[in-house]
Design a protein around this nucleic acid. Structure first.
Length: 271
DNA sequence: ATAGTCTCCTGCCGGC
DNA sequence: TGCCGGCAGGAGACTA
């Protein structure tokens, strides 16, 4: 499910149930996701009060009053289920708050992760230290991307999925941003003009912002027992639309595989 | 350093 | 109906 907008929407939804709340009970229903749950996770969280929530790239952050932050990643299939009416076999970690809310981290494929990190050193944590700039922040500039692309023979699309270059983009929004900027996904990154990069940066920010806004407007859905939080597929211009007309020019959308992952693009709009 | 491939895991969908 | 292959939002470990 989750790219940056989905994680952001998830965090905002969780905040309504967790911010200022004491965690009364933590239940682990298995020992691991992608990696084992951290040692002492239950003990670290139980009795702690959540001071605030946040997000870095595709990671959600649950800060506690013990200088410990629970860092979660949703992988491919992760989601939080709010007040689930019935347990699900993929509810791997369950939090119960002092005021009786129940929140279940559900992840069928278990590509996600949970870590507890010392809050004051959070951004020196190795996984975070390696991340590139937040795409919605001021650090993602055309200059930054131009420097990252310089001399690179690799196609631009897989490079934009590299979290060291931009932190938070995933397969869907990279496809969408490249379409909007009119850049071929298989163009060598180093061959992309500064002018095209100047178009790309605002389109990255726009597509992410629009998606967060759409998510925010349907945040009510998030609180439903099934915990579904969909992508806003109706707004996609190319992703998942092979052979359907490009929403800009009507030409059938193409699909190709790059690095083992599907890329959707328009041969007419993207040069 | 860079580029490309493979893998983890489960669920779903389409074809036969 | 049931089986099988292919595909899926991510990312890290490999290899050349």
């Amino acid at each position: 499910m989750p790219e940056l907008p989905e994680v952001e929407t998830t965090v905002r939804g969780l905040a309504r149930y967790l911010e200022g709340e004491r965690i009364a009970r933590v239940t682990l229903n298995r020992a691991d996701l992608r990696r084992p749950f951290p040692e002492g996770l239950v003990q670290s969280l139980t009795g702690a009060t959540v001071t605030s929530l946040g997000r870095r790239a595709k990671y959600g952050l649950i800060h506690t009053d013990r200088e410990q932050t629970m860092v979660f990643h949703l992988g491919m299939s992760g989601r939080w289920r709010i007040e689930p009416e019935t347990p699900d076999k993929h509810d791997h970690l369950v939090l119960e708050t002092g005021s009786g809310h129940m929140l279940a981290l559900n992840d069928a494929r278990r590509f996600g992760s949970v870590d507890m990190v010392f809050t004051p050193g959070l951004y020196q944590w190795p996984a975070f230290a390696a991340l590139g700039p937040e795409p919605l922040g001021e650090d993602l500039t055309a200059q930054h991307l131009a420097a990252a692309f310089k001399g690179r023979a690799a196609p631009v699309k897989p490079l934009l999925l590299d979290q060291r270059i931009v932190a938070g983009l995933g397969n869907i929004y990279v496809c969408e941003a490249l379409l909007r900027a009119g850049i071929r996904p298989d163009k060598a990154a180093g061959a992309i003009s500064r002018k095209a990069i100047d178009r790309l940066v605002p389109e990255i920010k726009a597509v992410l912002s629009e998606s967060i806004e759409a998510g925010g407007s349907t945040i009510r859905d998030y609180a439903q027992p099934n915990g579904e939080l969909g992508y806003f597929a109706a707004n996609w211009r190319v992703y998942g639309r092979e052979a359907q007309p490009c929403r800009h020019c009507g030409t059938p959308v193409q699909r190709m595989v790059q690095g083992g992952r599907s890329t959707f693009w328009c041969a007419k709009c993207q040069k």
